[in-house]
């Protein structure tokens, strides 16, 4: 996995952008199975399952070639 650090501080908007997107998708998943069945269940599994998949993928880690003090 390739990740790039930021040389300067990021704005709050940049820091929270992806968390906002992912948590909105999660909320959509939480509500969709509640208001219907069938494809709304599928949507719920996709939205919440997607965030679990991201979590598992990220937890494998990013190789850091730099030294940590």
């Amino acid at each position: 996995m390739t990740r790039k650090s930021h040389k300067t501080s990021q704005s709050a908007w940049r820091i929270y952008f992806w968390p906002l997107v992912i948590n909105c998708v999660c909320l959509l998943g939480l509500v969709s199975a509640l208001i219907g069945n069938g494809w709304l269940d599928l949507l719920s599994w996709a939205c919440l399952g997607g965030s679990v998949a991201l979590l598992i993928y990220a937890s494998f880690g990013t190789v850091d070639k730099g030294k940590v003090r």
């Binding site: 930021h6 820091i15 952008f17 992912i22 990220a58 937890s59 880690g61």
Partner: peptide, 27 residues
């Protein structure tokens, strides 16, 4: 200064678990 959802490998345990705490907590 960190990219979203990063969990740095090859760092001390504490750094790894801090990243894990932040990543899993925010997701």
């Amino acid at each position: 200064r960190l990219p979203f959802a990063i969990v740095r490998k090859g760092c001390r345990n504490r750094v790894k678990w801090l990243d894990m705490h932040n990543m899993a907590g925010i997701i």
